[in-house]
């Protein structure tokens, strides 16, 4: 290790290995955590459906005076289970978009009770005021039902996928998502290549234990420091997102990803320490053998 011809290439390979390990750990976290099942599980654990339901309730209570339609017409037939189903189906539709790269489209989940409630209100109102149930009436009824589904879908769109699509971001996320497993494999191969080159460069093969050890340890530390800072300072809570359910969805998802990343970095740090200890033991072992031979 003391020879410049070994030392400098080893330092360069070590730097590359650290960057490779950081990339690999981030990609592993994304590969493992970004699945529809885990996302749905997160949404259910954090009770995001409650927040969406509260937002829908608030919307209809505020709109009641402007539209003349009492909020109970809508809220009475929208259950929390229905809201949860809509959220889950939107999450699944989102991942289908990520996998296929096609445009996001989400069919509304039919709610017969809601439609019946709106129809009843309209019919009762028409009967009370002798309003003719003509084509205009039917159009208005149809529009109200469509708007109700639009409102529910919008409030259940907890990751603002519609908005991301209209701003051109969804295609970028989809590009990355479709390649994440490939990228993870490439990153792992890169790390293996760096280790292979370290073996090639170092005459004393036990020195590779040292280089791998410090690479893993430094990679762990570099990843841990900002990740712990983000969690400790509750950084994601500073996102100014108006809708509580969207805020909760994003911040919880980001905290979950960051916590998983921290766990991976801790593992890296421990592995690095193990390799360094192994190197120290090897050095002592070989020094002992040399001293014995000299005797």
């Amino acid at each position: 290790m003391k020879k410049i011809s070994n030392y400098i290439p080893s330092v360069i390979l070590c730097v590359l290995l650290i960057i490779g390990l950081l990339g690999t750990s981030a990609l592993i976290v994304a590969d493992v955590r970004m699945t529809p099942e885990k996302t749905i599980d997160l949404a259910q654990r954090e009770e995001i459906d409650e927040k969406s339901y509260a937002a829908i309730e608030k919307y209809y209570k505020e709109k009641a005076s402007a539209t003349g339609i009492p909020s109970d017409v809508f809220i009475g037939s929208i259950t929390k289970e229905y809201v949860r189903d809509v959220i889950d189906s939107q999450i699944e539709a989102t991942y289908r978009v990520f996998e296929s790269g096609r445009a996001y489209s989400h069919a509304s989940i039919p709610n017969p009770e809601l439609e019946a409630s709106i129809e009843k209100f309209f019919n009762d109102y028409a009967d009370k005021t002798n309003y003719p149930k003509d084509e205009k009436f039917e159009t208005k009824l149809k529009e109200t039902k469509a708007q109700a589904y639009k409102t529910i879908n919008s409030n259940c769109d907890i990751f603002k996928i519609d908005s991301m699509q209209s701003h051109g971001l969804l295609s970028k996320i989809s590009k990355f998502y479709r390649r994440k497993t490939t990228l993870t494999v490439i990153a792992a191969v890169f790390d293996a290549l760096m280790i292979g080159l370290l073996l090639l460069v170092n005459r004393r093969k036990r020195d590779v234990l040292y280089w791998i050890g410090i690479s893993a340890a430094i990679s762990g530390i570099i990843g841990l420091i900002p990740a712990i800072h983000l969690v400790r300072t509750r950084y994601y809570d500073s996102f100014s997102i108006k809708q509580p359910q969207v805020f909760a969805a994003y911040t919880k998802m980001l905290y979950s990803l960051t916590n998983t990343f921290i766990r991976v970095q801790v593992l890296l740090l421990i592995s690095g320490a193990v390799f360094i200890v192994l190197y120290a033991l090897c050095c002592r072992f070989f020094k002992g053998k040399i001293a014995e031979n000299q005797k």
């Binding site: 290790m1 003391k2 330092v11 070590c14 730097v15 650290i18 960057i19 950081l22 040292y210 410090i214 690479s215 340890a217 430094i218 530390i221 570099i222």
Partner: peptide
């Protein structure tokens, strides 16, 4: 000298990597 090199190397490598990143 060998021990000093072994101790200093992680700091050198860490500094280079942080700078690049």
């Amino acid at each position: 000298r060998s021990i000093a090199l072994h101790i200093a190397t992680p700091f050198v490598v860490g500094a280079i990597t942080c700078g690049i990143l």
